[in-house]
Amino acid sequence: MLELKQLSKRYATGDLALNGVDLEVPAGQVLALIGPSGAGKSTLIRCINRLVEPISGTVMLDGEKLSGLRGGKLRLARRQIGMIFQSYALVERLSVMENVLSGRLGYIGFWRSLLRKYDSADIKQACELLDRVGLLSMLDKRGDALSGGQKQRVGIARALMQQPKLLLVDEPTASLDPKTSRQIMRLIVELCREQNLAVIINIHDVALAQQFVDRVVGLAAGEVVFDGRPDELTEETLTLIYGEEDWSTDAEDGEHGEDEESGDESETGDPLNNIAKGAHP
């Protein structure tokens, strides 16, 4: 269903984040993407919905080529792909309901979205999703009034509100405690199984991933180095993914690793961080 061919990304800083990644994900498969910080996991999923522009290679979703799309066509492509973030990325000053409904933005026109005039069906769906994630009673609360786990649940509802074919999940549990992490992972996997969605989950916690997913792909220095079932992950393969990587130089920092605290837990080459850096010079 999703097909990546020779996908490569080099940042303006010259760092090669992805180096010819090939990947195929059938519908209904839950895939965990593991790898050291800066291996290109965030870049990879952002290249799929084009939040990050790959320099070469193609992305095919259900036979439609996403690379090269612009304007309205890109919007139509994006609305088929839900996304869940590590930092939850709720718009904190909007209410829970508005955040969930914003998943429909790809479907409705500007004026209706401005006046918050959503279809009755959309509202019904939003209520069902909120009920499903256990937050229906909170729909009037503002985003910043929720706890981390609750925010992530709203994030999940927002992504599913898009009625996506594919779900991209970026470190969903990195900011949560172990118990909440398990609950969130279970919720994501259950919901996706119900709707037969393909999912790509970036995750650091290998043990947690093994318990929930169908397939594990290991990424190191922008290349796929492992692809198999969770139970095929041995110590050797883990060494292949994490061990031999020189932790002091991130893949995206490339050879010139002098670029600030390399090997830091926060992925220095992460596109989000790049954006953030640009915003705070």
Binding site: A89, F110, I275
Partner: peptide
């Protein structure tokens, strides 16, 4: 402004 919030709304296919 927080870039993650902006990215999230862009990812929904918003104009």
């Amino acid at each position: 402004a927080r870039p993650d919030q902006m990215e999230a709304v862009r990812a929904t296919g918003a104009s």
